[in-house]
Design a protein around this nucleic acid. Structure first.
Lengths: 219, 219
DNA sequence: AAGGCATCCCCCGTTTAGAGGGATTTTGAC
DNA sequence: GTCAAAATCCCTCTAAACGGGGGATGCCTT
């Protein structure tokens, strides 16, 4: 009723079927009652652990699963592929207190549709859920920042444009002769560039160069 | 000259200094008047092109720059590194009508702090700007989805767990002997695995395997 | 019992990698 | 216009890595 822009592609059944897996009962029941207070949502189940949910999830068949990262027993990130296998249509939104980059990227790799910090205010959580139902993705600002920084290149690279170009190809597993062919330059030129790259990065092998360059975001 | 107080310390002055580069005058003036109507924002400049903005941007010294992707003359994505060089503290939010993946990732690489589609409703744009000012990132749901899909692995990989593990290391430029050492297995075992990987992916070199595996999101 | 998986063992010839020493020509900034 | 940096190319050398071929062995799961 507030934002018509977020609700165009879901005419038949307005109810959004949500399940929640969260070990802290206070928080879990908080989500349940707050979502139940909204006529757009229907809570088909809430569980304190992945193990406890498995038997019931298939019957509940939720559109959205709110999944805590930090769980006793099976962790939320590990549960992701498992749940997606039995319920391929379910869209999973991870909930977390931490913004641990490792968890974030593991969750994204395993097919999470959203990643929200628990301090996100509640009306925004509802907005995010609706966006995910409509085929979008959901990310808290802090998560979005980390994801963006993951892409961000270092503009103060010690490498020249050409060197960067070559190292990127080295990092794609390409041989020196293949790189030479791609860039229309001589094999010897590629060798020279790689030599200079190694000196600048103070390494003496491909994988070390890749590692250093990735850590410094030169590539 | 008058609002130079906004340049360094954020807390004392609650005003968020915003500049806008957008060629469509209707849209641009729309943003200006809507943001000016909010006491949290101060518009220090609005320009129809990057070229037109360059002389004034340094004096305006905005906290936030709203930057259109599709511009006459220099494109928004190409302007990013240029602007960040002269104004390193400015946080740039890209505005776009399209959700072209190429633009998205180029913008992120070049250091955008946000990426919003123009159909984002206006109160949300303001929220997003505030989140960016507070050190977060901003992404529309459609953009977030694409970013997430970029990470997503294919769960139907033809490769076994071990093969995937090995190919990931191959894709990091590591030699067979290094991989063997890392996984505490024999060099011959690694060779066998790589042979099997090549057969499964129907390739016969490292870089082809990496390419095919990346395209299929097996790694 | 069968099949996939992971592990290990040889053979072979070819290519590449890395390190050392150079030279030349564009290019860009001042 | 000058000067340095960047990009291009050249040569030799050894050791290592690569790709392809043929196998074998246990270990699970079905």
């Amino acid at each position: 009723m507030m934002y018509s822009a977020t609700s165009h592609t879901r005419p038949p059944d307005p109810l959004i079927n949500v399940c929640i897996i969260e070990d802290d009962e206070i928080i879990r029941k908080g989500y349940v009652s707050l979502l139940q207070a909204d006529p757009d949502f229907f809570i088909s189940g809430d569980y304190p652990s992945v193990e406890a949910s498995l038997k019931h999830l298939e019957a509940a068949c939720p559109d959205i699963l709110l999944l805590d990262i930090q769980l006793p027993g099976m962790k939320g990130v590990d549960a992701l592929p498992l749940i997606k296998k039995t319920l391929p249509q379910v869209r999973i939104i991870m909930l977390t207190v931490h913004e641990n980059p490792e968890f974030i990227f593991t969750a994204l790799k395993n097919g999470a549709s959203g990643y929200l910090t628990k301090n996100t205010n509640f009306s925004k959580i509802k907005d995010h859920i609706k966006e995910v139902v409509n085929g979008g993705g959901a990310m808290s600002a802090g998560i979005a920042l980390q994801v963006m920084q993951h892409f961000q290149k270092n503009l103060n690279t010690p490498l020249t444009k050409r060197e960067t170009e070559i190292l990127e190809r080295v990092a794609d597993g390409k041989s020196r002769s293949k790189i030479a062919a791609e860039l229309f330059i001589d094999l010897e030129t590629v060798k020279s560039h790689i030599k200079n790259i190694y000196h600048k990065l103070d390494v003496n092998s491909r994988d070390e160069a890749i590692k250093v360059a990735r850590e410094g975001r030169y590539i």
